[in-house]
Design a protein around this nucleic acid. Structure first.
Lengths: 135, 135
DNA sequence: CTAAATGCAAAACCTTTGCCTCAAA
DNA sequence: TTTGAGGCAAAGGTTTTGCATTTAG
């Protein structure tokens, strides 16, 4: 049984067959699928999964902090399993999403919030860039 | 005539009475109103303004880079007049949006993108924080 | 067995658009 | 006068929800 599935079980979530499908897709995805894509992948495995259940499941998992929701500006919500914190760089030409982490940045954000009299509880950073051509 | 209104005129945009209302609201707003709120404020001044025109006008102004669109995670687009670049800190308890600018952060973002082989064309940073209580 | 989850379809949002009318330049 | 803009309402796209039915625990 996958780790995420186990976490859900430990949390006492009812593990229906449909949830298991959606959860295992989320834990085996390396990308940032939106609900439509999750639905597509889910029905490939089990045609009984409905889009409503996908929506309900991602909300459930998000509330449990097991997955994270992102909005990269195309109007749809995309999801990925929670894990080590990282930021996103979006290639504006290809739509590719590249994950990265920069410790200097992490420290700086805390510092800025603090300077403004706030405790940082969450943040969101996306860089949009064009790949440099090497001449 | 307001500056933004003048910029629109210089750009050759047709200045209808409805556009003038929406534009003047945008240039006199200190906050980040969504379309519904813009519509509300507009119809207070001129009941003939329709929500379709508000949508069409914000799109027009955004394409002209006269205003900026933000999505703070509540599913609606919010707008503000373009001006000096700044970031946003959102008070998670009150919803208040505080603008700030930090040069160290600006430099760092460029640096990170470059390090990854990208030219930064845009970015988005939002900090979500809780106000520190002073004991 | 029972509370909770599902599927389905309808509805709720936000946003866009077609079409005919109207008005700015 | 003419081309683009506006109003209205319908349609689009994403997400939520009510209800009868099914199912995990």
């Amino acid at each position: 049984m996958g780790k995420l599935l186990k976490k859900c079980q430990n949390r006492g979530l009812k593990l229906t067959s449909q949830r298991e499908v959606v959860i295992s897709i989320l834990e085996n995805s390396e990308d940032h699928p939106d609900v439509d894509e999750l639905f597509r992948r889910a029905t490939e495995i089990d045609k009984s999964v409905s889009i409503a259940t996908v929506y309900r499941t991602v909300k459930l998992l998000e509330d449990a902090n097991f997955i994270e929701k992102h909005e990269f500006g195309d109007g749809k919500s995309r999801y990925e399993e929670s894990g080590e914190h990282h930021e996103h760089l979006i290639d504006v030409e290809t739509g590719e999403v590249i994950e990265f982490i920069d410790n200097e940045l992490e420290e700086l954000k805390e510092k800025i919030a603090l300077k403004m009299g706030y405790e940082l509880v969450d943040h969101r950073l996306e860089l949009f860039g064009k790949k440099l051509k090497i001449n």
